[in-house]
Nucleic acid binder design. Structure first.
Length: 478
DNA sequence: TCCCAGTTAGC
DNA sequence: CTAACTGGG
C-alpha cells in the first residue's frame, strides 16, 4: 500500500486541543492527507447551553482558535462544522471520502456512548488513540485482576506497571487541506455571540499559553512546591488543571517534563506532584469502571441521606455570604476566576455537605458550571471524597473546621483579603472568625456584622455535631 | 490531604 | 497557660 494514498479525518474534540503529542495527528500525517475537524455540537454551543458554562467556553474557544492557527502554520487547517457529532462526523467522512477516522479516547460514559454510535454509523474504521491518561483502561489491576478502589495501592501499582514514553513531536508540516473541503468551513462563534462576557481573570487558553504555564511552574517548583503547595495565599501550585482538562498539554508532556525538572533536584516535590497526577489517573480509572458514579454515590447510604433543601444556605454558599471567610473566599474565587485551590475546594465542599446538609450533587453541578478545569471524573471524585461516599473517600466523620483551616493554610490572610475586601482591614488574628473580634476591632476595621459582612449562617460546632449524629445513625444502621 | 476532648509535661 | 501526644469518631 502506498503510504500517501490515505486520507485521514482527525476528529479533535474538547480534550485534545493541541498539535504536540497528539497520536491521531501524527499517525495521519505519516500516511498522507490529513483533515482536522472540530464539531460545534449544539449540546455545548447552543447559546442557552453555552451560557451554562461561561468559563469553560471562553477557554475552549481560545484553545480552538489556537489549534486552528497552529494547524494553519503547519500548512493545513482546522475545519469547523456545526451540528450533532453523531450525525456530522459520519456524513462528512462519507462526503470527503476519507479512509479512516482517528480521535482520542474519552473516559466519560456519555462520550463512550457517542463514540459507539459514531463507530456504528461510519462506513470506515474509527480508531481511538490513548492519550487522555497515562494508563490504558484496565492496565492497572490488582493481583486478582480487579480494579482498585483505594488510591494508595492504585498509585503503587501504576508506578510499577505504567511505562510513560516520550511525548510525540508535532508534525513539521502537513499537506494543505483539499479545496473542496476548505469551502465547507464554518466559523468559530465569538464569546459575545453566545451571550457570554469575556472574563479577563481567566487563564488564557491555547497550547502556547499552556506551555508557558508549565515552564514557569517547573522553574520554581523545586524550590517551593513541597513546602507551599497547601497554601491558599501563595501561588505555588501548577495551575495546569484546565490544560489537562482540554488537552492543551498532554498528561505525558506534563509527567515527563516534571520528572525531568524535579526528580533529582527535589524528590519530595516530584513525589507529591506526581501523586496529584496519579490522583487524576485514579479518578479516570474509577469512572471508567463505574460509569454510574456521575449520577449516584458509591455508598448506597448516601442515596437516601436526609439532605435539606436549605435554599437560603444554598444561595449564601453560592454567593460567598456564609459568614465564614475562607468558605466565602473560595465561592467568590470560583465565580470570579473559574479556579479554586484544591484545599479551598475541600473546605468549601465539606461546609456545603456537612454544615449545611445539602446534597453534594448540587455542589458538584455548581462547580461544573463555573470551573474552567471542570472535569467530570475529577470533580465527581472530589465531591464524593468530600462527602465521604466515594472511592477512597475520607471517613464520614471528618468535618473540616473552616476557622482552623483558614488560619493554617491562609496564615497571612492574603487569600481572604483578596476575595473578601469588606473585611480586609481586620487584623490576622480575627480575619478567619470576624464574629469573635471585639466590637472596637470591628469598628476600627469598618465592619458592621450583619450589614457589611454576614454573621455566620450556622454555628460550626453545632452543625458538625448535627451532621455526625445523623451520619452515625445511618452508618451503623447498615 | 481531619477534628476534638482528654491527658501529660513543661513553664 | 501552651504544646505535644493520644484515642476515637
Amino acid at each position: 500500500m502506498s503510504s500517501t494514498s490515505m486520507r485521514t479525518l482527525v476528529w479533535f474534540r474538547g480534550k485534545d486541543l493541541r498539535i504536540s503529542d497528539h497520536g491521531p495527528l501524527c499517525e495521519a500525517a505519516c500516511h498522507g492527507e490529513v483533515i482536522g475537524l472540530f464539531v460545534l455540537d449544539p449540546y455545548f454551543f447552543a447559546p442557552e447551553r453555552a451560557r451554562e458554562l461561561p468559563h469553560r467556553m471562553q477557554f475552549l474557544l481560545e484553545s480552538i482558535a489556537a489549534l486552528q492557527s497552529n494547524l494553519e502554520q503547519l500548512g493545513s487547517g482546522l475545519v469547523l462544522a456545526r451540528g450533532k457529532s453523531i450525525e456530522v462526523v459520519p456524513r462528512l467522512a462519507r462526503r470527503w471520502r476519507v479512509d479512516k477516522v482517528l480521535a482520542q479516547r474519552w473516559t466519560e460514559p456519555f462520550a463512550r456512548k457517542r463514540d459507539a454510535i459514531v463507530a456504528e454509523r461510519l462506513h470506515v474504521p474509527f480508531e481511538l488513540h490513548e492519550g487522555e491518561t497515562l494508563a490504558v483502561p484496565e492496565e492497572v489491576r490488582t493481583g486478582e485482576g480487579k480494579s482498585y478502589s483505594v488510591f494508595t495501592p492504585f498509585a503503587r501499582a501504576h508506578r510499577a506497571v505504567v511505562r510513560v514514553g516520550s511525548p510525540l513531536r508535532a508534525p513539521k508540516t502537513l499537506p494543505p487541506l483539499p479545496d473542496d473541503i476548505r469551502a465547507d468551513k464554518a466559523t468559530l462563534p465569538s464569546l459575545e455571540s453566545l451571550g457570554i462576557a469575556h472574563n479577563p481573570r481567566l487563564l488564557a487558553g491555547g497550547e502556547r499559553a499552556a506551555r508557558e504555564r508549565l515552564r514557569r511552574f517547573l522553574a520554581s517548583a523545586a524550590e517551593r512546591y513541597d513546602a507551599e503547595r497547601d497554601r491558599l495565599d501563595l501561588a505555588s501550585t501548577s495551575r495546569l488543571s484546565a490544560d489537562l482538562k482540554f488537552g492543551t498539554l498532554s498528561i505525558r508532556t506534563v509527567w515527563t517534563a516534571a520528572r525531568r525538572a524535579l526528580e533529582r533536584t527535589n524528590p519530595k516535590a516530584w513525589r507529591s506532584f506526581s501523586n496529584e497526577l496519579l490522583w487524576r489517573e485514579f479518578t479516570h480509572a474509577v469512572l471508567w469502571n463505574n460509569p454510574n458514579l456521575l449520577k449516584h454515590p458509591r455508598r448506597a447510604e448516601f442515596e437516601t441521606f436526609p439532605w435539606e433543601p436549605n435554599e437560603p444556605g444554598w444561595r449564601a454558599w453560592c454567593e460567598g455570604k456564609t459568614g465564614y471567610p475562607i468558605v466565602d473566599a473560595s465561592a467568590r474565587q470560583l465565580l470570579g476566576e473559574g479556579f479554586v485551590h484544591n484545599r479551598a475546594r475541600m473546605i468549601s465542599a465539606s461546609f456545603l455537605v456537612k454544615d449545611l446538609l445539602i446534597d453534594y450533587r448540587r455542589g458538584e453541578a455548581h462547580y461544573m458550571k463555573y470551573l474552567t478545569d471542570g472535569d467530570w471524573a475529577q470533580n465527581n471524585a472530589g465531591w464524593q471524597w468530600s462527602a465521604g461516599c466515594g472511592f477512597d473517600a475520607q471517613p464520614y466523620f471528618r468535618v473540616f473546621n473552616p476557622i482552623d483551616q483558614g488560619r493554617k493554610f491562609d496564615p497571612t490572610g492574603g487569600y481572604v483579603r483578596r476575595w473578601i475586601p469588606e473585611i480586609a482591614r481586620l487584623p490576622d488574628k480575627h480575619l478567619h472568625a470576624p464574629w469573635e473580634a471585639p466590637a472596637a476591632v470591628l469598628r476600627a476595621a469598618g465592619i458592621t456584622l450583619g450589614e457589611t459582612y454576614p454573621n455566620p449562617i450556622v454555628n460550626h460546632a453545632s452543625a458538625r455535631n448535627r451532621f455526625l449524629a445523623i451520619a452515625q445513625g445511618r452508618m451503623s444502621a447498615r
